[in-house]
Design a protein around this nucleic acid. Structure first.
Length: 568
DNA sequence: ATTGTATGGACCC
DNA sequence: TGGGTCCCCTACAA
């Protein structure tokens, strides 16, 4: 378990298990030296315990070696030395007369395992490790151990968890009223909010120019032309032409990026990012110097979970937030209109049911869904639907058959028909249950909707064949991909390239930092590497619908744009 | 017992 | 010293 994560970081086979060297040493030693195994090693020659068979499977993969002061785990990449195939060559084990080949092999394995464990000298290592534990040598690591505070009991805990105030005085065990965090999340008033920039002078000529650009460039968008799917070869060639530079990296929000949208304009390169802080950062890359092209707004008081330019009018930027509002940023009027508001709820995702962006489906964090019609006055929804899901992370509408939409919850993926939504609990048309951990997202493929890609915490990206919605949709491909982003990084979401029906884009934990593209059949297609320009994890990525432009957002508000040189 | 969630602190200019 | 950046642990609760 340890070795895997640690090996990821290193190219060479041999790495010291840092974790074991560190605080976890005690646990690891126990793990290796279970009483059963110790018995195996001491009575190596004679004991034919069942447990050694289980261990054998593991020793095929990992060799436990002991050195003077640490436990070294090394990947056994070469053919196993246990030699499963060369029968009857093990010294001392030749007299198997009268036994079936299976039993011969079994006995051979058992004896080899016993020899192997004897050769490890586990009891000696154990003694040495016990010494180490006694001494409790501080591990040699770059990072210093967090300094223990005097009033803490040894573990790292926040003042809040310790239930003390910052001066160290214990707070009453049960606060009579909830602690106000107004400073962090200033509540925003209902109704339209003026577009007031957080980082620049609102009355400057530059700001007026910015608004004009974002309002007018939208009209220059070319109509969606039915493009032919490029072959993987030419697609790859196009991706290879995409580069990143200092000019295409910039911090556009305070704090982690939760959502991103690329403006469909084919002339200007406009990127929008929604942050955990509730900010929305807008960046016109065509503008130089780059700091003059960035404007930051605060249309929400909590994380902006979902962000889309309106397909009907790209001068509208719709933003959804945990704060229970859906707003529409209108650049021509310089306001963030309120489209839908439910303060009791927390919105996780939305999509357009109608292509003209008049009706929307909004997924709530608590598992319910809302149908919103923007043509009716007011900011309440038409219908509130309780799904059988306990949580909803993403909703996505089928690109062709727009009555279908897919939701990704904690464990389940559901596909619904929007025509049959009623107030009572509704049943999904299809529900997928193969995911074993929480699901981050589920998206239909962009042109036909014949595929679904899901991102799951079990470190697998799955691609399903959704070409036939009426029956079960079969699993097509599973791609192993580290999706454990941990506590501080935004969760990954694999998304389709809107112009390439069969390729997905996903952030990566790999070093050097990169954004990866995979084919629906599981083949690796491309890695966006940025050298010094890309040195952090891009969790949220968006590709331009027609051009070769990729924007990746990290967890400190920075956007990284890869594009064709000719686009700059 | 397992699994999801929360949001702190070391390091680097 | 301090602000910016990025990390992938881990206590706690459901």
């Amino acid at each position: 378990k340890h070795s895997k994560s640690l090996l990821d970081k290193n190219s060479n086979n041999e790495v010291a298990c840092k974790k074991c060297k560190k605080a976890e040493i005690k646990k690891t030693c126990r793990r290796i030296l279970t009483p059963k195994m110790e018995a195996t090693s001491s009575k190596a020659e004679s004991s034919l315990q069942k447990s050694s068979l289980d261990v054998h499977a593991e020793s095929n993969k990992w060799q436990y070696k002991s050195t003077s002061d640490t436990v070294i785990l090394s990947a056994d990449t070469e053919s196993s030395q246990d030699g499963d195939s060369d029968e009857g060559t093990t010294p001392g084990m030749d007299d198997f007369s009268g036994l079936s080949p299976y039993e011969k092999k079994r006995l051979k394995n058992i004896s080899e395992n016993a020899n192997f464990f004897a050769s490890l000298q586990l009891s000696e290592s154990a003694a040495r490790l016990r010494e180490m534990i006694k001494k409790r040598q501080p591990p040699e690591s770059k990072r210093k151990k967090p300094k223990k505070k005097e009033n803490e009991t040894g573990c790292r805990r926040s003042m809040r968890l310790l239930k003390v105030n910052p001066s160290g005085v214990s707070l009453p065990a049960t606060p009579t009223q909830p602690i106000l965090v107004a400073d962090e999340n200033p509540l925003l008033p209902p109704g339209p909010l003026e577009m007031t920039s957080e980082n620049r002078d609102d009355n400057s000529e530059l700001f007026k120019g910015f608004l004009q650009t974002w309002a007018e460039v939208s009209k220059t968008r070319s109509k969606n032309t039915e493009k032919e799917l490029s072959s993987i070869k030419s697609y790859k060639a196009n991706l290879n032409g995409m580069i990143i530079s200092e000019d295409t990296v910039y911090k556009v929000t305070k704090g982690p990026i939760f959502s991103m949208a690329l403006h469909p304009s084919e002339i200007r390169t406009l990127v929008a990012a929604g942050a955990r802080s509730g900010q929305v950062g807008l960046w016109d890359l065509t503008h130089q110097p780059k700091e003059d092209g960035v404007y930051i707004f605060q249309p929400h008081s909590q994380p902006v979970s979902c962000l889309y330019f309106s397909p009907a009018n790209p001068a509208h930027l719709l933003s959804l937030s945990y704060d229970g509002t859906l707003r529409c940023g209108d650049f021509s009027r310089a306001v963030f209109e309120e489209v839908y508001r439910d303060e009791r709820s927390s919105f996780s995702s939305f999509d357009f049911l109608a292509e003209d962006a008049s009706t929307l489906i909004v997924g709530h964090w608590d598992g319910s869904m809302s149908l919103v019609d923007r043509r009716t006055p007011g900011t309440s929804c038409e219908k509130l639907i309780n799904s059988s899901l306990s949580k909803i992370r993403t909703v996505h509408v089928h690109p062709v058959h727009r009555q279908y939409f897919i939701t990704a919850g904690l464990r389940d993926i559901h596909i619904y028909d929007a025509r049959f939504l009623n107030r009572s609990r509704i049943k999904p048309l299809i529900s997928l249950t193969e995911h074993t951990k929480s699901i981050a997202s589920a998206y239909f493929s962009p042109l036909t909707g014949n595929r679904v890609v899901t991102t799951c915490a079990d470190c697998k990206l799955r691609i399903f064949d959704s070409s036939c919605i009426s029956s079960k949709i079969p699993l097509l491909t599973t791609i192993r991909h580290n999706t454990i982003t941990g506590r501080w990084l935004t969760r990954f979401q694999a998304v389709w390239d809107p112009k390439q029906e069969d390729c997905i884009i996903v952030g990566s934990m790999a070093h050097p930092r990169r954004v990866e593209i995979f084919h629906e059949r599981g083949k690796w297609v491309h890695s966006f590497l940025g050298g010094e320009c890309l040195s952090s994890v891009c969790s949220i990525n968006a590709m331009h619908p027609t051009r070769y432009i990729l924007a990746g957002g990290n967890s400190s508000g920075r956007i990284h744009v890869f594009m064709n040189e000719s686009c700059g």
